[in-house]
Design a protein around this nucleic acid. Structure first.
Lengths: 350, 350
DNA sequence: AGGCTGATTGACAGCGCTGACATTTCGACT
DNA sequence: AGTCGAAATGTCAGCGCTGTCAATCAGCCT
């Protein structure tokens, strides 16, 4: 014996299974990998042996022999509350394809970013990667991935690259719809709180707002469009400025829920009656959206689905064909409006 | 050539490195694994070759030959906003030991739990696992892990098992301190909102509250101790009931921030002036704590540190010795009070 | 110079599986 | 029965590394 066996748990190998099923290891391998060309009776016999021995193929051996890894990487910069939902969706989809997810935080600002990424990819022999923003937009990441030659799916990238598959949501349409809900309730002076410059979401959400306003023949007051950078603290000041204008806006559309919560605080401090004197809507359906009073009307991100779809794209990639099919796959997911208490008809006297 | 090489990226193997350094592959292996017994001059030569060729050892091959995997698993049931922070800390520590983290959601309620867990462990040949609650408390998980014979670190387990290393925080002391802050500000009637029964945190936090009250010679009004199950919605009703009592409590201690946010909403709906008429404190320092007005005084969980310590325990495990050292390692981390606006002196007239 | 010890290095098999290719089996058709 | 092609199965080397153990080397002593 080569090494002291761990207590009692010497897992069966493919050979043991083969013996028991009365076939060669190669045939067992065929069954495991779902290859065609195995008589169904033989397959049954092998499957039975596998079940009986509780056999688990050794991933490392499969990887080494087959030049695969069964691993895909999920790279992110700042963790946020959305990450765990996203990754749970991705893992679920991975399981269906017998893949596994490695999560790897990475510093977008680090000068070592390219090397770190490349090291991880090559050491783990990743079969694909999923990139969360803002990583999905960095040229150095693109370059490294191209050099590595593995499929990469970009989540909500700023600019769609011709050669980069992506998954994103139709933020523009959702904001257009929700803004329309505001207008339908009589709101005319609506403040809009922008996200951080450089994010695709910032741009798309604003465009959706503009769409709806123009479609209803309304002009946009530049004073009522300000940035809160997706942050609560900045959103607070931003909201205060907006609410100081006269005539006061009767509604505020914040580009995310954190800022919407900030607007709510600001309004409260000014003793406005909510939602009667001010309607507030946000975006994301973050946990905070339903933990304030009134609860925030917002747009729900299908985070799990996004994760699932991202993993799906990777698992559908056919390495033996050269690269992605053209045009590269892109998934555009719909969003769902969540109407809650923070949205009310505009005050009569406005 | 055995198979079509991926475009351009045939990674160097240990043999190439050995040739270039003028040594045998085994010596390169020794350098990679930091084994002693390599002359420092030789080591230098090998290191140079590695750097020059940008060599990355193949994990699968290392694993297969050395009967390791370099993988540890992080198992969780419900993802939450805390998960990503935790896992980021764990990954960071893993990197220092050349380990990688596989995240795996698992359904605590599933009848297949044991089998699923066992399959994952054996398929990936995990070297250790980290269990987040409530998984850390399930007997079937314990049994599976014991059978697998790999180290497992339990995060905040309900009961400390003799043979199970764990990492948790001193919730009891933190609540005692924070309650004392309340009392020092003149509060005498303090409501306490319990978490979900069966969680260690629920119990410990309540005990901390009791400690502080008794230490100050105060009795606990059973009417003012109710459960909100860690949920916002239930916390809302719970708070309403408490605030309906006369004399009204002048402060509410909620066992987590979600429920504290609920108490805040309830108070608002009853038009109480906050924090003048009612102080509210929570626990966790969840994102919502700083997104409501007034911001919540709470207790900060060092999530990253917990993750880091958990990974550290695993990486310090010495498989060649039989199991964990006795007594089994346990880490008890301190918590930090975060004093914010929701805490104020008790109203005079109370 | 010879012998001895411990430190360094190397040779080689084999981890468990799969790719390439060889061989056997089977059924259809003369 | 004999032939043939496709389908099913088997053989075997080798993926890249590490464990085992043997060989070599340097330093020190007598």
């Amino acid at each position: 014996m080569r090494r002291a066996a761990a207590p009692g748990r010497a897992s069966a190998t493919i050979e043991v299974v083969a013996d028991r099923a009365g076939v060669s290891p190669k045939t067992v391998s065929r069954v495991i990998n779902n290859e065609r060309g195995v008589r169904s009776e033989t397959r049954e016999r092998v499957l039975t042996a596998i079940r009986h021995l509780d056999y688990q193929p050794n991933l490392a051996a499969r990887g080494l022999a087959g030049d695969r890894s069964f691993l895909i990487g999920l790279f992110y910069d700042h963790p946020g509350d959305y990450l765990s939902e996203f990754q749970t969706g991705a893992v679920q989809r991975c399981r269906e394809s017998n893949l596994h997810l490695m999560v790897e935080p990475l510093e977008a600002a680090s000068p070592e970013l390219g090397r770190d990424l490349s090291t991880l990819i090559r050491q783990l022999r990743l079969e694909g990667v999923i990139l969360l923003p803002p990583l999905s937009d960095l040229p150095v990441v693109h370059a490294t991935l191209a050099a590595a030659g593995i499929p990469a799916v970009h989540i909500a990238p700023m600019r769609q690259q011709d050669d980069a598959p992506s998954v994103d949501t139709d933020d523009r349409a959702a904001v257009r719809q929700l803004t329309t809900e505001l207008l339908r309730r009589g709101h005319r002076r609506v403040g809009f709180m922008l996200g951080r410059a450089g994010h695709r979401a910032t741009e798309q959400r604003y465009l959706g707002f503009v769409d709806a306003m123009h479609a209803n023949g309304l002009d946009i007051d530049p004073q009522l469009v300000q940035t809160g950078n997706f942050e609560f603290a900045e959103g607070l000041e931003c909201a205060r400025r907006m609410l100081d204008f006269r005539p006061r806006p009767t509604a505020i559309f914040a580009s995310n829920d954190d800022m919407a919560a900030a607007a709510l605080c600001a309004a409260r401090q000014m003793s406005l009656a909510l939602p009667r004197q001010l309607s507030i809507v946000g975006f994301d359906d973050a946990p905070v959206a339903s933990m304030v009073w009134p609860q925030l009307t917002t747009v729900r991100q299908p985070l799990r689905v996004i994760g699932r779809v991202a993993a799906e794209l990777i698992s559908e990639y056919q390495p033996h064909r050269q690269g992605w099919p053209r045009p590269v796959p892109r998934r555009h997911l719909p969003l769902e409006l969540v109407l809650r208490g923070s949205l009310a008809p505009a005050p009569q006297d406005s």
